[in-house]
Structures are given as C-alpha cells and as structure tokens.
Amino acid sequence: MPSTLRHVVLFAFKNKATAEDIDTVVTAFGALKDAIPAIVSYEWGTNVSLEGLNDSFTHCFTLTFAAAPDRDDYLNHPEHQRFVGMLGGVLEKSLVLDYWVQ
C-alpha cells in the first residue's frame, strides 16, 4: 500500500462572505498544520483554471498524511473540529477527496 495519503478540500464561499471572512478561514486552516502533528504537509491556492469547470469552488487545500490513522486523528482533533465549526456562516459548500498517492 502507498505510504502517502492526500486529503484535498475545496471550498465555495457564500456570496455574502467578505474578503476578510475568507482570509480568516484561510488563516485558520493554515494554522492547523502547526496545531496537529499528524499533518506532514499543507498547501493551498485559489482557482486559476481557464476552463470554467470549478462549479463555484474557489479555494483548494491539500494536506498530506503518512497513514490513514494520522488522517483520522486530524479529523477528530479538537482544533480541526473548532475550525469546522467556524465555517457555517461563510461556506456555501465543500468537497473533500482523500487518495493514496500512486
């Protein structure tokens, strides 16, 4: 079995979300890498595709884990749970995909 697990998260924000609201979410997401030791790496960016197929998703976050239990620890970690709790007011929808690197 491969030993690198990617956790990809896409966010589409509500129309009423301000730039400050979005910056707060991005900053809080980035802070998880320092709060949760199971995260091997973290990166993020905004959509720059010219294809127009992003279905209103504008922000992509990718986290790397060494094993499934590490990802599970991240999902259940109190800091992650706190982060998820702050999203309701500004997030329209999200999409999450996990895969083993081939």
Rank of each mutant, 00 (worst) to 15 (best):
L53T: 03
N54W: 01
T27M: 08
T18D: 04
A31G: 13
L32T: 05
S41E: 13
A68F: 01
V8Y: 02
I22F: 03
L95T: 09
L32N: 07
P69N: 06
W100N: 02
K33G: 04
Q102L: 14
I39R: 01
R71P: 02
V26A: 05
Y42C: 03
G89Y: 03
F61M: 01
E79Y: 01
V40E: 06
P2F: 09
K14P: 01
V40L: 05
Y42G: 03
P2A: 15
V48K: 06
F11R: 13
S94E: 13
E92G: 00
P69F: 07
L50S: 10
P2K: 14
T46A: 10
M86G: 09
E79D: 12
N76P: 00
A28S: 15
A66V: 05
D98K: 08
G85R: 09
M86Q: 14
V101T: 08
C60G: 08
I36H: 00
K33H: 13
E51R: 10
T27N: 11
A68W: 00
A12T: 03
S49M: 08
F29K: 04
E51N: 06
L10W: 11
M1K: 13
I39G: 00
S56L: 04
A17E: 07
T18Y: 04
L50F: 07
H77L: 11
E79H: 07
W100P: 01
A19R: 15
T4I: 09
F83W: 03
H7L: 11
N15K: 14
L91C: 09
D34A: 13
G52P: 06
L87W: 08
V96W: 01
C60F: 02
H59F: 01
I39W: 00
D98E: 13
